[in-house]
Simulated assay, not measured.
Amino acid sequence: MKTAAVLFVVAIAGCASAAPAAVNAARALPAKALIGYLHASFANGAGYIPLANVSDDWDVINLSFGEPTSPTDGNIQFTLCPATECPNVESEAAFIAAVDAKKAKGKLVQLSIGGQNGQVQLTTTTARDKFVSSVSAIIDKFHLTGVDIDFEGHSLSLDATDVDFENPTTAVIVNLISALKSLKSKYGAGFTLTMAPETFFVQLGVTYYGPGPWGGQDPRAGAFIPVIHALRDSLTLLHVQDYNSGSIPDLNGNWASMGGSDFHVQMTDIVLNGFTVANNNGKKFPPLNPAQVAFGVPSAQFAGNGYVDPTAVQAAVNCLTKKTSCASYSPKAGPYPGLRGVMTWSINWDEYNGGAFRKAMRPFLNSL
């Protein structure tokens, strides 16, 4: 999730406690969900939208962004957009009332942590514990349903000796897993957890994982894989950002590029089919439940690199769920009729574009 496009290139050489009132009992997403990011702490050129004005077409609203006071302190902060930047920003009381109203309609309203500028590196257990306490304070204050982990840039990377995704040893990985398990334990079944990694941190792991045996690869390659795997039983949704991406090998070993429906099918098939992780002694990342999986697209041409028309997004969904409307790539397993839906960056950019994305996607998803 970004305000500008970013491309990465690999250099090859106990019991849960009772849930606080802020988090309600477990919720059921609709069979096909529309997920969007709301610029809540900044305008980003697209304009500010008060939460109460966000269309009910959206099933999941990720508030962007919670950011740390410094990359390694774990102290996550979230404030509404300053009035100097967003003259139409609502009061905190009105915002909280809007959160409650959305939840009453069955919507998920979460804190998205990270983004392009919010580097989060939980290098110590002290930072881990501060992360848990500061995120909990935000959840409780704003009555949120859970968190979305949108760690980008240099937030996650793997140590040279960390080669087994089932048993990670890198501090930033281990501490993040521990922190998210603590939040889940604190809030119980009602706590929602979603993740929005970039393709570099997930699908690239089919071919490259960490620094590699000779230490010449980018240590961030595939670094989200151990986090997803460790939390798969607690994960509400994984929606990888299929945008601002370099080329990524698909399950056939062909390099896939943005620009059509194929890329979304190729990238999503990787996590739905499962894959052998590179440099990992042949260990396979097991498939995720399709009900936990969506894929991410830009809502408009100016929202991010890799934009395709909603008809191409719909074709990708049809290919994944029915094996119809496929272009040159067809899912290796599948079809996956339980695929949960589509995520987009962002709600604001979509409304800036007249709401074209949601107006196309909502009835389409309802028809499936």
Rank of each mutant, 00 (worst) to 15 (best):
M361N: 01
A160T: 12
D57W: 04
T199H: 05
L80F: 02
A300M: 10
G74I: 11
D162C: 04
G334P: 07
I149E: 02
P211V: 08
P20V: 01
P249Q: 10
F295E: 05
P298R: 13
D309K: 03
L156N: 11
N279V: 01
M267S: 11
M267P: 01
D129Q: 10
G304W: 05
V135P: 00
K332C: 01
R340A: 14
K186S: 08
K359R: 15
A278F: 06
G338T: 09
L80A: 14
T170V: 12
A97Y: 02
D159F: 02
G355M: 12
K184D: 00
V9A: 07
I139E: 03
A25W: 02
G74V: 06
T69N: 01
K107Y: 02
W349P: 02
N53E: 13
V308K: 02
A294W: 01
F65K: 09
T3Y: 11
D159T: 06
G246L: 10
S91D: 08
K186Y: 12
H143T: 08
V174W: 06
T125P: 04
D262K: 14
M343N: 07
A16C: 10
Y307S: 05
Y48D: 10
F201A: 07
E67S: 06
D162K: 09
N62F: 14
G304R: 07
A356M: 13
F201H: 15
A83S: 15
G215A: 08
I228M: 08
I96N: 02
D233A: 15
N348S: 15
G246D: 14
G341C: 04
S299R: 02
G212K: 04
L231S: 14
F65N: 04
K130D: 15
L339T: 00
F78A: 03
F131L: 08
F357H: 00
M267V: 06
P20T: 11
F275K: 08
A300C: 04
I139G: 04
L320I: 08
V10T: 15
L320F: 12
G215N: 13
P50I: 09
F165A: 06
K105E: 11
V297K: 00
V313W: 12
R358G: 12
S346F: 06
N44E: 14
V271D: 08
G304P: 00
Q116A: 05
L237M: 14
E92F: 10
F191W: 01
A5G: 11
P226G: 11
G260D: 15
D57L: 05
S330N: 11
A22P: 00
F275I: 09
N273G: 07
L183Q: 04
G246C: 09
G341W: 03
V293H: 05
T125I: 12
L34C: 09
I225T: 10
A333T: 13
A43D: 15
A294D: 01
K105A: 08
G338L: 04
S247E: 13
L251R: 06
A83L: 05
N305V: 15
G215F: 02
K284C: 05
K284M: 14
C319K: 02
V271C: 02
N353T: 09
V308F: 11
P30A: 00
Q116R: 13
A303F: 07
L80S: 12
G215E: 03
P30S: 04
C86L: 10
G146Y: 03
E198V: 07
E90Q: 10
I139C: 01
G260E: 08
A43N: 08
P219K: 03
A104H: 13
T194D: 12
E351A: 06
